[in-house]
Design a binder for these strands. Sequence first.
DNA 1: TCAACTGCTCTTTTT
DNA 2: GAGCAGTTGA
Length: 780
Amino acid sequence: MAFDLSHLNPEQRDAASHFEGPLLVLAGAGSGKTRVLTTRIAWLVEEMGVDPGSILALTFTNKAAGEMRDRVRKSLGREPTGMWIGTFHSIGVRILRRDAQRLGYSPGFSVYDADDADGLTKRIIRDTLQLDPKKWTPRSVHGAISSAKNELTGPDAYAERALDPFEKVVAQVYPLYQKALRDANAFDFDDLLVKPVQLFRDNPHVLRRYAGRFRFVLVDEYQDTNRAQYVFLRQMAEEHRNLFVVGDDDQSIYGWRGADIRNILDFEKDFPDARVVKLEQNYRSTQTILEAANRVIEQNVHRKGKTLRTDHVGGERITLVEAADEADESQWIAEEIRGRLADSPSLALRNFVVLYRTNSQSRSVEEALRRERMAYRVIGGTRFYERREVKDALAYLRLVANPAADEAFLRIVNVPRRGIGDTTVTRLAEHAAARGIPLLAAAEQAAAIDGIRGGAAKALPELAALIRKYAALASTGGMRLDVLLRELVMESGLVDALRAEGDEGKDRIENLEELVNGAAEVQRRLEEEDPELMMEMEAAGEDESARPLDVFLGHVALVADIDQHDPQADAVSMMTLHNAKGLEFPFVFIAGLEDGLFPLTRAYDEPADLEEERRLFYVGVTRAERKLYLTHAKRRRRGAQFMDSTPSPFLESVPQDLTEARRTARVLERSAYSQPWKSSGAYTTRRERLFGGSPSWKAPASTASRGGGGDDETYQVDYSDSQDLPSMRKGSRVRHPSFGAGTVMELTGHGSEVKAAIEFDNVGRKTVVLKYANLEPEWE
DNA sequence: TCAACTGCTCTTTTT
DNA sequence: GAGCAGTTGA
């Protein structure tokens, strides 16, 4: 019986049943490219009798990899045993786990995250090179190194090309940085892409092993590949040439991290025997939405050029919303969702998504949804593993897995406090550097190091002994991973220290419990021999192999969404536009369509950047199946200051006959009476009542000439951002999250920098910056 | 020498 | 609010 391809249209079928040779699928948004990818995999296995173990499928996010694996499993009706499906980074880890010894690493290596990498860069700039880390910020230096690595430019080649002073500094740091990583038995994110390429280049027989095994290579979101990824693919496919890539140049939004749009534009040049299939039929959106999307992307010059078609006709108009400020905008969105739900009982919260350019925009939307008592989940933003206590616990664990991981050691050496300060650490680092040993090893000898005395001389060997003890436990495999982690956070004193922090510490302890649950999950999957995880256990080395601990840490480093594991939950989704790629929702709100925010101001410097912002907008528009809302606010707080905003120029490219314009009640009211100080809205009104009404302080006259004028400034503080900066006056009773209840004694400053001197009932007088203090009215 | 405190700066997007 | 540098008191 022939494999059934009847669920595909002719172009899709053409692509999915392509057997050998390079193929580029130029797939528009919503054209079913994921379906084509998974169908091709199933077709190869079922119809052509290809061994699943010879298929390698690469994606950019873990989410996409997980979905692809699920779909393949479903369409095969069984586990695709031996097939490798994963992100470029996770595949890199797998390869390195097996073959890192050839690069001088051991399989228990660490993966340094961005913080670790910045920290290491900083130490090199400050301590080794004795340069000023303020002048040469670790972030930008590491960014330059990262870019160089992604272009496969090594330290020597970089140094030859370094011209300006900044590049000269980078050229000094770069080789030291690479050496420090190797000494720490650690890879950074970029290494996970670059090191396999080096490995293959220097060991042709290793490449032959992989290329010989994976006869079919598939890549999703090919437009996002950078130079290193491109070379990796070329290495893998050079001989068999079965490279199947799917992408959309119009959705290239990762230029800033090295994605090279030329990889897709020049695919036919690079692979002259390549076939190209275009998928221009869109199955996702209404005609209205699609027409708008086409108009938007037409404005870009650098593109292959596709025009999406749909069989859907008509569709609801796109709603453009003008709001007074971000709180008003968020409130409007929340109420619109409520209204939609009330109109159609078949709709659920999960049918709605709010998209924005920057993570910080999520806050006001969250507040509005909370107020309306609607469930929501925020994708991205402050991730679980980025939380302080989680990073601390993981640092302990990483040190246990890899005693050479100096960044982990530095993180926890005085957490919880054990009386080890900067001076002690510096002495320790000097000792370690002189002997070429890791910090942890130096800590064992602390008592013998000049200048380390007293408490530190005792605490350091104790810490080292603790780590050694758990390292031994991890190696024998006698203790379950989750049990090990639990005991480690207890015995290290981490939990006790958090307990002493009070309410906030309680939340943090809960997060640690969550982490222990994550460890238990990995342990369980390994015990059940989950094929996906088992693959990482089979390291190539004979004497050393990966342990559950290594597998867990590898996952934590690469999998961002340990804490948002519930795709079925009925909740409104919120995420950045970058995170939205590949997803679809019936109802989509794109918030913050203001000049300077979206597109960001800095994008105006480079035409290419502006085109990338426009592609980002295009990605957002094409997420919508049924209805699209584009909202903007006339005024928004950005960082420490307020900005009057004009609508995004992107809105001009959306044809008027496809849209309807709306204004929030607050905007209407204000323009009707033109009395901006008479702000309305239930929430503000409640605040006004609570705080006794009229504003009781003014911007000092001296600031009146700044920005929009003095009146404006006062108005901003008192009303328009009342949710962030409650209106108050001398004598108001307030509650501070850590200081408790108190009475406002004095108000100084202006604009967003208003400070309040507060006499707290328990802790006395403190001065707080209103913007950050998170004060609540005290209910009495 | 260290912990606690003050004051200052910072906020694009992500593996 | 967080991270960091600089200061102060113990």
